[in-house]
């Protein structure tokens, strides 16, 4: 049975359980700790199915990683920052500057550019879901790794500065910025969700499977979700906007000595 099919069957079964759990969860009058609730759900998935949904994305990503592109090459020929085909701990160093593209890239963008430059795919042939799965597979090699994003190259520093400015810019009909919630109200709750600052490790759990949405979210997906909730149109995938914000957040998390969660993480 293909990974995709297995995933479908599992997710169908799991969706029912999640719904039942969620119904009980939101009907509760006392605020539950969302982290504890996620861990409870995670345990339920493991006991019922023996596998976590995120791991199925990892499996799918692995298949795609070793798939030959039009050039006849697999992604083993791509340098993700620690040399060709080295995946161990690579995600924990990203985003960083890559001399071959002359650009600062996060993991998702790196997958996207390598699929073109190394594997010979045309941009329009590259499916977002495939990049998502491959990113999850590679990120799984940095599970619980210490985040080590330290901008040094002039382009990395420029990207950090752009990310910081975007972080503080108030814009749109709702007058929002990242900072006005994630810095000024860090530690408080928006509905059930605790708000964290980069210094508190914000960003250390992606890619993650969100059981409420029954979807896998990468860092870029999660940034888009934030923009959606403050009514600002989503930036294009693999654009400097995503990379700059990711670099800024993870560089701040690095300064505070944070590590990644188990990747892919399991969350609300």
């Amino acid at each position: 049975m293909s990974v995709r099919k297995k995933r479908l069957i599992l997710l169908a079964g799991v969706a029912f359980g999640a719904l039942a759990g969620l119904a009980a969860y939101t009907q509760q009058s006392k605020p539950l700790d969302p982290f504890e609730e996620a861990m409870r759900q995670r345990q339920m998935y493991l006991e019922t199915f023996g596998v976590l949904p995120g791991d199925l994305f990892v499996e799918e990503g692995k298949e795609l990683f070793y798939r030959k592109g039009p050039s006849g090459k697999t992604l083993e020929e791509c340098d993700f920052g620690k040399g060709k085909g080295v995946l161990e701990g690579a995600y924990a160093l990203l985003p960083k500057y890559f001399p071959d593209t002359g650009r600062v890239e996060d993991l998702e963008t790196r997958v996207y550019t390598c699929m073109q430059r190394v594997q010979g795919f045309k941009p329009e042939e590259i499916k977002r879901d495939e990049v998502r799965a491959i990113t999850t597979y590679i990120a799984s090699f940095s599970s619980k790794a210490k985040i080590q994003v330290v901008p040094k190259h002039p382009q990395e520093l420029a990207m950090y500065n752009l990310g910081r400015e975007l972080w503080y810019t108030r814009a749109g009909a709702r007058d929002m910025s990242c900072a006005v919630c994630h810095d000024q109200h860090a530690g408080q709750r928006v509905r059930l969700s605790p708000v964290r600052s980069p210094r508190q490790g914000l960003g250390n759990e992606w890619p993650a499977y969100r059981f409420e949405e029954d979807k896998l979210y990468t860092m870029e997906d999660r940034i888009d979700f934030c923009y959606e909730s403050i009514a600002i149109p989503k930036p294009e995938f693999y654009s400097d906007v995503h990379i700059a914000l990711t670099l800024y957040m993870l560089a701040e998390a690095t300064k505070a000595g944070h590590s990644f969660e188990e990747l892919p993480f399991f969350t609300r």
Partner: peptide, 22 residues
């Protein structure tokens, strides 16, 4: 404006709808 012309130019990469907000 808060962002510089240079920064606004880089934000254009995020797409028209996104950049317009800034």
């Amino acid at each position: 404006r808060y962002l510089t012309e240079e920064e606004l130019k880089r934000i254009q990469a995020g797409g028209k709808a996104y950049a317009e907000v800034f």
